[in-house]
Design a binder for these strands. Structure first.
Lengths: 245, 245
DNA sequence: GACTAAACTAACTAGTTCGTACATTCTTGT
DNA sequence: ACAAGAATGTACGAACTAGTTAGTTTAGTC
């Protein structure tokens, strides 16, 4: 009997189980009775949350499966049950980080604003958003240390940032049309600039602050860097930058 | 007798030995006879070079002492003899990375140029320099993952980037004086902007390229990003940015 | 209410990894 | 020439770590 169970598990693998779980979102642990000991979705989510924190904090090789298991409401066996192996868990954590951040980004609406104001709002939003999601930034850093080899395996993630480009491209083209922005800039390059400044603010805060003996975490310092970043981007795209910021 | 040696080593620690080696730079292996089997400085340098590569590639927890030892002309025993433990080796590798990059940076001279041209040259140099020293960038990324806790222990590193600030500050103040740059920008903030753009270009190349399906390594793409970066910085500081780039 | 697949647990294993004890060779000052 | 100490090689062990084995419990279904 146990042989059979074992066989079935091996046959479908954890992906099969995961798909089944997604197909049937019954929300057992939350809305149902609290006394219910079995809660697959809850267990899975709990593991993923704990793992995300641990990977973001310690990296792929630095994170410990035993440590993750200990912080979980569940056990180590369950990690392997749902995610196969350490790399599988990491990949899911990475995808999860991207998904969380995308979900937040879609809330921004700039269609009613004039292009410079729209771009200002987008940059400010990106700056704040990156700052709020340090865990995501750290996952991207870690993934870059691994040369993006896990991101490469994920179909989900590529999709995520396409919307970001669409958004900034729309603003930019509106600005070119009404004569406030100069033509000839690739929207991806513009996004690159915004990303670079907003990303660096979080990713390199530790070393930058320590080398130059500055408190970059203070509200005053962050407000200044934020203003600088907006000014930088607006001046980069504007036809008459001295009027822009 | 061996007890005594052991005792002495423990008493002075590896720092004592390291200092002694620095105090007496006899250059044994290179200019001297090649047949000399013992070459402490060479061994030390060789270990450090190998370790730097391994740490930059795999991170602190990802790097393996046995792997480093295997790639060395020497042995694992020597790593512990000279650097104490894994963290000691990492710290020296980190310091070494900063030192190497600083040594390269001091070669830049912009004193004869007009401020906009000087700043352009500085940005271009920084862009190229970061790109050439990917190993350094990766070490800084890794150190940021560790919240800069090792950098904190190092007195040497803080010194390094002071000269970078001095340089950009001098250019900026010359520009303000002659009326080409706007006043009120903190030179550290300006350096922050330059660093962000040049750093991001190397640090996030993997994920950015994979998400947007672009070859950012090509000479054409790099030239474009380099031009954009220069334009961005010049427009940020200039009084009349539309004239600057 | 018996049956079955899914969910879950505890203990274990095979292999890795940092670090060290012990032994030997080389170099230098006297 | 010869101590004394610096530099190096070998082999090993204790602790850790990813992953597994073997078994139990739960909950939906017929």
């Amino acid at each position: 009997m146990y042989e059979l169970v074992s066989l079935v598990n091996r046959q479908y693998g954890f992906e099969g189980i995961a798909m089944k779980l997604q197909r049937k979102p019954q929300e057992p642990g939350k809305t149902g009775k609290v006394t219910r000991p079995q809660d697959p979705e809850g267990t899975r989510r709990n593991i993923l949350e704990v793992a995300s924190k641990e990977f973001a904090l310690n990296g792929l090789s630095g994170a410990r499966i035993d440590e993750i298991a200990a912080r979980t409401r569940s056990s180590k066996r369950m990690i392997y049950y749902y995610f196969g192996d350490k790399e599988g868990l990491y990949l899911h954590a990475l995808e999860n980080a991207y998904r969380l951040v995308r979900d937040g980004e879609t809330k921004l609406d700039t269609d009613g604003l004039a292009p410079p104001e729209a771009l200002r709002k987008l940059v400010e939003f990106t700056f704040d958003h990156h700052r709020r999601h340090e865990e995501f930034i750290r996952m991207v850093m870690i993934e870059n240390i691994h040369h993006g080899q896990y991101l490469e395996r994920s179909d989900i993630i590529r999709e995520v940032n396409k919307t970001a480009i669409d958004h900034i491209a729309r603003i930019y083209h509106r600005g070119v049309s009404d004569g406030t922005f100069r033509a000839g800039i690739d929207p991806v390059d513009l996004h690159w600039q915004v990303s670079a400044l907003c990303f660096f603010n979080v990713s390199n805060r530790a070393t930058f602050a320590k080398i130059f003996d500055r408190d970059l975490d203070s509200e005053a310092a962050q407000a200044r860097l934020r203003n600088n970043t907006v000014a930088t981007i607006l001046r980069f795209v504007s036809l008459r930058p001295d009027m822009a910021s």
